[in-house]
């Protein structure tokens, strides 16, 4: 949302409000990433068709959307065992190595994003400095009930909320740990020894460049190093097993190949 808000502001498009809805569902196909989303973006304002198309493109090419649907991430993997040994795990092989375990299916649910209009920030001359914040409501099936969570994301001067791109990487790091905890040979017996660290180089032109890329439909390659700490030694937790798990991690696969988006639509409500 905040990328679209920024693109609209830079392009003098009279965007008054924006909402985003995702339906999340399991996708059970061989070698697929295991889930997909259907996206509906609702724009409010006096927006012409060319302007709608521009904002639609911005929505499709925002940094997080690029990472999940265009395979824009360039990942360098390093594995560290608890005995101190280190090895590079990149690149992951094209073929899918065998694994004795399977990941649990993702529960069906939805993600609704509402833009918080009064969180936009302007400087003394009236120029937008920060696009503001979005309230994100998550709902999904749990074991005994439907569960709901709310988080905030966006850009603010005080840094109260997580910017979207780091928030997306948080999901990736969490996904990696979740997958490894299920698929490594020790299963969940020694899961406490698992952790993941992400190192992202600064640069890429910042928010302004990201918004320009989104507006023009440019895919920007971004590098990230993922350090994976696993228990044991290369004998007890072989590198091949770690790689096989990484190749089944849903967000890793999306980052490498895209494929999350099942359907998307951008509509205007006056």
């Amino acid at each position: 949302m905040v990328t679209v808000v920024g693109v609209a502001y830079r392009g003098n498009i009279a965007l008054e409000d924006i909402m985003v809805d995702f339906e999340v569902e399991a996708v059970e196909l061989p070698n697929a990433i295991g889930f997909g989303v259907r996206e509906l973006v609702t724009l409010k304002g006096r927006i012409s068709e060319p302007e709608r198309v521009r904002l639609e493109r911005a929505s499709r090419y925002c940094p997080v959307g690029q990472a999940l649907t265009k395979g824009s991430m360039e990942i360098e993997d390093e594995i560290r065992w608890s005995n101190g040994e280190v090895a590079s795990a990149s690149p992951l092989t094209e073929s899918l190595p065998p694994s004795d375990w399977a990941l649990p299916a993702i529960p069906t649910g939805s993600v609704h994003g509402r833009y918080l209009l009064d969180t936009k920030e302007y400087d003394d001359e009236g120029k937008m400095e920060h696009e503001g914040e979005a309230k994100i409501s998550i709902q999904c099936q749990n074991l005994t009930r439907t569960s709901r969570w709310t988080i905030l994301g966006g850009h603010s001067s005080e840094g109260w909320v997580t910017p979207p791109f780091p928030l997306g990487h948080a999901g990736w790091a969490a996904s990696t740990v979740s997958t490894l905890s299920r698929l490594l040979p020790q299963g969940t017996e020694d899961a406490d020894g698992l952790s993941v660290e992400l190192y992202m180089a600064a640069g890429g032109g910042g928010r302004g460049q990201s918004q320009s890329n989104a507006a023009e439909g440019v895919v920007a390659r971004r590098g990230v190093t993922r350090r994976i700490m696993v228990p044991g030694t290369p004998s007890t937790t072989p590198i091949e097993a770690v790689q096989a798990a990484l190749q089944r991690d849903p967000i890793t696969l999306a980052y490498l190949n895209g494929g999350v988006l099942l359907h998307d639509e951008v509509v205007v409500e006056s």
Partner: peptide, 13 residues
Amino acid sequence: PPAQYLSVAAWAA
């Protein structure tokens, strides 16, 4: 929420 939902939430934001 499952980790994938955190990534989708970031996409929404």
